[in-house]
Each structure stands twice: as structure tokens, then as C-alpha cells.
Nucleic acid binder design. Sequence first.
DNA 1: GCCGTTTTCGGCCCGACTGTTTTCAGTCG
Length: 574
Amino acid sequence: MENVAIARVLAEIGDLLEIRGDNPFKIRAYRNAAQVVRDCGERVAGLAAADLRALPGIGKDIAARVLELAETGGSAFHRELAAAFPAGLLDVLRLQGVGPKTTALLYKELHVGSVAQLTQALDSGAVRGVKGMGPGKEAALRKAIEDHQSFAGRYLASEVWQQAHAVLAHLSAACPDATFDLVGSLRRGAETCGDLDILATDAGPEVMQHFTSFARVERVLGQGPTKSSVRLGKGLQADLRLVPAQSRGAALQYFTGSKAHNIELRDRAVRQGLKLNEYGLFRLEDDTRVAGETEASIYEALGLAWIAPELREQRGEFEAASAGRLPVLIERADLRGDLHCHTTATDGKDTIRAMAQAAQEIGLTYLAITDHSQALAMANGLDERRALAHAAAIRALNDELDGITLLAGIECDIRADGTMDLADDCLAQLDVVVASVHSALSQEPERMTDRVLRALECPWVDILGHPTARMLLRRDASGLDVEAVISQAARLGVALEINGQPHRRDLHDAHARLARDRGVKIVISSDAHGVAGFTHLHWATCTARRAWLTPQDVLTCLPLEALRAALRRHRRDA
DNA sequence: GCCGTTTTCGGCCCGACTGTTTTCAGTCG
């Protein structure tokens, strides 16, 4: 059983306990454990009880449930809880504005067990007969159902980024003296976002009116003097909070999250006789402000170094910050080259020359052209003859370029049986080979793993591209045993890619961190299919930072000659 | 249900907004 599947069951136990009205701290414990499992780089299904219990937030009971899930694929406790309520009740719980109390009330009073039954209860007028349900609630429920049907609920970070900048441009024009910060999951560099969070300082309450009257606002969900929420196009919810300038640091900290990080930080404050909220850090005894104008002042007052937003996921950042062992995280500007992109030779939109110029303009000093191999017929993939001719053209262009060096590479398909799509003597003549899986994605986990392990045996494979082939919000990762692949990559000196396409972000952060810990080098790639695609390096860097990576962990931070020497084909220690 | 440099028992983050309440509960982040 994969981590995401185990995490799903644990989270659902939390939801069901909540409807049942159970101890809120028990509910939190299950949700917290679900997050820990989801973020764990290793497969928790493969861990022994003692190792499970070593994970933060997993104690005796939850460890036993995880073991049971790993062994049997199910949990008796989960089945028992689920049997007590209709399956559709969890959908009711997830409606906007509907919490556990309302869900339980509707179920108890009206036997509402699904969104469809809630619609019926609204239409029949039964809802308004329930105590506490007025016309306002009734209308809110109808809107929530409407939203539930039209919005899936999560958005790619890159989509939210675009909307965010449109909102910021509008607000900045309306309130030129105000300061606006993007906070929430977007600031943490997350892969997907549930909403968009914006913080305003140095602004009057009229900023709320400007916000809710923005042209792209489809619905105002709430408006007050310091907090407003709106629904933008495609259903994305955006929240704006206004705080005084002296609280900007505290509010940045608070609204950036994550929730788990904030709970721990507040807990630390309480243990030191302090109280932390979005307005500042205060002494409990007399409410004296201790810090709040900057984020760093808050962390410092709590005995911690400032923690980069990407690390705020309660994955060991507090221990590192208090011990002075936080990593100096990689930044986009540390990247000296890109080893994965496409041109018009296959499915790219721009020529070799245009790609080279675009890469140079963003500060790169080398670029590997890695078009597709023949198996990707749909993309006009290259056979051996075309691949070598393409390589010759790439190298010839180097004579005309100044300030950037092109490498002749290929993104070679890994066939369903694990053999490479191009002959060894062809691959040997190239400067760099990225091996990737593009087909037969539904293979059984064992077969998929064997396939990739076999591909890595090919001595000319330097990099494994987008290892799990997942597509965020579209399809799950393949059944690949990533830990086994990491071990093989470490043994053979193959680098693993963090692919920056916004819907890939593959490897994801937890696996990239594990790979680094096991001695595997990482490559940060754009997989650009046109000059605009180099912006993907930003998203790959976000993932690398969330994986705690430093420039020393990433091959593409090396200058060209050192990079060449570090590629698997040239490694002396391999 | 988890956890421990005050603790193996007794805690566990905190404030804004909404709708239904005539003083507050529920939800959200």
C-alpha cells in the first residue's frame, strides 16, 4: 500500500470521528499522522513497528493501524466507523461552510447521507424546519452544492500564481502605498493550492472594497474590515487579510503556514510564556509585544533561526533551526544549466538556436537539447540516424554561440520491457542521455519497477527523467518502487531529475530529499517545449527547496566542465 | 491519540466572519 493510500484512510478516520463528535485532539492526531505519512519519503508500509513509532505524531495506536493497513490493505477501525454512516456523508462534510456539527445535525434530523439527499431536503423545505437553519444557511448550502459540482477544489500552483499576479496588479494600482504579500501554500512553493492567500499592510479598510470589486471576482463570500474572501474564475477562492504594519512579520508567518508548522510554533511560544497570533508575539502575563514586525524577529525571539517558507511543513525544520543546522537552500540563480528540453525536431515549438538564446537570457551557461526518441512516434521521435544528425547540428551551432554551450542529448524512452529505445552505440555518441517512461504507465508495480531498474543498468543513461510519470490533478504516479530506484541510482551513479513542468514536479519533494540522503545527485530540469518553458525551472526549484536541497546536491549548479565529469558516463568512481 | 528539559497525566493554537442566536455556535484558515 502506498503512502498516499494509507494517508487517505487515516484522514478519513479523522473525518468520521469528527462527524461522530469525538475528542477533537484525537481527530487532530489522525489528521496529523495522515500528513506525516503523506510526507514520508520512505514507504511506511515497509517499516517495522519501532520505525513507525519513531515518526513524529505516530504512537502506539496509529502505528498498529498503519501496520494493519500495510498487511491487509484495510483497517477494522476504519470499516467500523464507515459502517456507522452512509458513504456519501463525507461529501456533505466537505461542502464549503458545512462542518462536522452541521453534517451530524442534518444526518440525525433529516437522514441526509449524501449531497444528492441534501439537495432533496432543501427542495422539499425540510432543511428550514431544523433548529438553527435559517434562510441564510439554506442559501449557503445551495451555493456550496453548486460549487461542489463545478469545482474540483485544487489548482496547480502555476495557475494560482497567474491569478495572484492579476489580483496584485489590481490592488497595487488601487492602493499604491500599500504592501501586498502572497502567503499560504503558494509562498511555501507547494505543488497545488486549495486557495490564494494575500496579506495587505499599510492600507486602509477601503482595500477590501477594491478587492471584492475586482473584475475577475465572481462571488463575494465574505467581507469585513480586516478579512474578505472571494471566488475568482474557475472557482478559485482568494482571501485578503489586512493587518497593521507593525504586525506584518507576524501575519506573514501566520498566514504562510503550514498549519502543522504554526501549531508547533505556537506551542513553543506557550512553553516560553508567550502568545503568538497574527498580530505579534506577546508575553502572556502582561500582553507586552516581544516581536512581530518581521518574521525573523519572531523566530529569533523563540530561539530559532528564520525558517524558509518551503521548509515549514513540520518535517524537522524546528530541530534544525534550534540547532543552527538549517540548509542554505538552493535558489533559481544557483542553476547554471538545464539538461532537458525539446525543439522543433520533435514536439518542441522553437528551434535549437531560439532555445539556446532564451536559456542564455535567463542566465544559463549550458543547455542540453534532449529531443524524444523514436518510440514517441506521436512526437516525431528520433531514430538513431536522425538522433546523430541532430547531435551534429547542435554541436555545429556551438561554433556560432557565445556565452552558452549546447550539449547534444536525447530523452530516450524506456520501453515496456526496460530496454532502451535507441541502440547503445548511438547513446554512447551523445553528451547526455535522459531516460524516461512515457508509455505502458499502468503496468503492475513490480513490472514497472523491474523495467526502470533494468533501464538504469544501461551504462549510457545519465539521468532518470520524471521518474514516477505522475500528472498532478490528472493521474497518479506509476506503481514504481521509488526507494528501490533510489538505491539503484546511488549504486550506479545515475542522477534523478526534478522535472519542473507544473503538472509534473517529479520527483516530488519527499522522494528528492530521500534520494539526496542516500547519496543520489539531483538534476533540476525545465523540460521546456518552447522558450516560454524555461519558467519551469522556478517550479523545479520550489520542489528542490521543499526537499531541503542545497546547490551542492544539484548537478546543474556545477560549471560545465565539472558537470561533464560528474555525469555517469564520465564518473571515475562508478 | 500523542507527548514530555516543569509533566507518564493532563494538557493539546487562536482569531475573524456569518447567521442565528438576544450573547453565541459553527466554520474556516
